[in-house]
């Protein structure tokens, strides 16, 4: 009996394997096709913009000088957002995983997750109507007293709708992603490694530095990169908050601000015709490529860190 049983069962199992591997490779194929489709569409519709000039490009000489300031604004806003969000997220994640009493930690984790569920327009409204006006005094103080620093201009914004305000809003929007992933990884730190530090007489913070951070390093990088992707692609909130004029400047409090690719598309797409549409799609293609490159770099960093660990 026992020798025949596997024989009668095996065809069914093979069918299961077949269905499963069929579904997974099918899903993988669909994702690849979708990505390829997007890339082909963006390229096909974007390439005509190479011929665009002046009128179709809001006065820019050619598509490169049209796109470059937008790329700058996209990267600058995302970088600022990450500078704010990363330490905050890691702090909150640590509080949830290692510091707060369990009940408070659960509530805190839940609240952070809730932030992720708020629609971008709500952040846009909050940023432009609530946050921006309240930042005006600080911006004008910085304009008066700190304009000799390269990050501040003496021409400070009267509305508060600067790139820095947009970055704050972006930071709050990427906080839940970075926090959720970091929290997950912090909580997975092997008990063994934590106790190694504690038994040596490490304080809780020293234990975090000795055991938790080294273990979580590559995970934090991935979390931040995911946040970066989100920050670069965020559209509505930036479009609503930022008062953009397409300049290239590092000033955080200025009345003239760079725009971002996504926000620029959102603001101009509805009224665009002809080559203007192609120009916008071209910038979309550039954003697509940047996102790819960022992810690629992130993976390279992570795998190098893992290799070093394994060596």
């Amino acid at each position: 009996m026992s020798t025949t049983a596997p024989k009668t069962r095996s065809p069914r199992r093979r069918l299961g394997d077949l269905v499963f591997s069929g579904t997974t490779s099918g899903a993988a194929l669909i994702i690849l096709l979708a990505l390829a489709g997007v890339a082909i569409f963006l390229t096909a519709k974007g390439v005509p913009a190479l011929k665009a000039t002046g009128d179709d490009l809001s006065g820019a000489k050619n598509i490169v000088s049209y796109t470059a300031p937008l790329v700058f604004g996209t990267l600058w806003a995302a970088l600022l957002a990450l500078l704010i969000a990363t330490p905050l997220s890691i702090g909150v994640a640590l509080a949830v995983s290692h510091y707060a009493p369990r009940r408070i930690a659960t509530v805190l984790g839940y609240l952070i997750d809730l932030l992720a569920a708020v629609p971008s327009v709500v952040y846009g409204l909050w940023g432009s109507l609530f946050l921006a006006p309240r930042l005006v005094p600080s911006y004008s103080w910085l304009g008066d007293h700190a304009h000799w620093l390269p990050l501040f201009s003496d021409n400070s914004s009267a509305t508060g709708r600067t790139i820095f305000t947009a970055a704050i809003v972006l930071a709050i929007m990427v906080l839940p992603i970075i926090t959720a992933i970091s929290r997950e990884i912090f909580a997975q730190t092997p008990r063994l490694n934590e106790e190694a530090a504690l038994a040596l007489g490490a304080t809780r913070w020293e234990m975090v530095r000795l055991s938790v951070f080294p273990y979580a390093r590559s995970g934090i990088v991935s979390a931040v990169m995911l946040g970066l992707g989100r920050a670069m692609g965020e559209t509505m909130a930036v479009a609503m908050v930022l008062s953009a004029s397409g300049v290239v400047t590092f000033d955080l409090n200025s009345s003239t601000n760079p725009s971002t690719i996504a926000a620029n598309i959102a603001l101009k797409f509805a009224d665009a015709t002809g080559l203007r549409v192609n120009a916008l799609i071209f910038t979309g293609l550039v954003l697509f490529v940047i996102t790819f490159v960022v992810n690629f770099i992130a993976r390279a960093i992570v795998s190098r860190a893992d290799r070093r660990l394994a060596a």
Binding site: P190, L192, N193, E195, A196, A197, L198, A199, L200, G201, L210, S211, P214, Y215, R217, R308, L309
Partner: peptide, 27 residues
């Protein structure tokens, strides 16, 4: 207390990202 009373665990638990030297010096 833990600085004065050392402990060795059932499973070896050196700090995974540290060199041999840094492990010895960690405490």
């Amino acid at each position: 207390v833990r600085r004065q009373i050392g402990m060795v665990f059932q499973r070896p638990n050196p700090f995974p990202t540290m060199s041999i030297r840094d492990n010895v010096l960690a405490g």
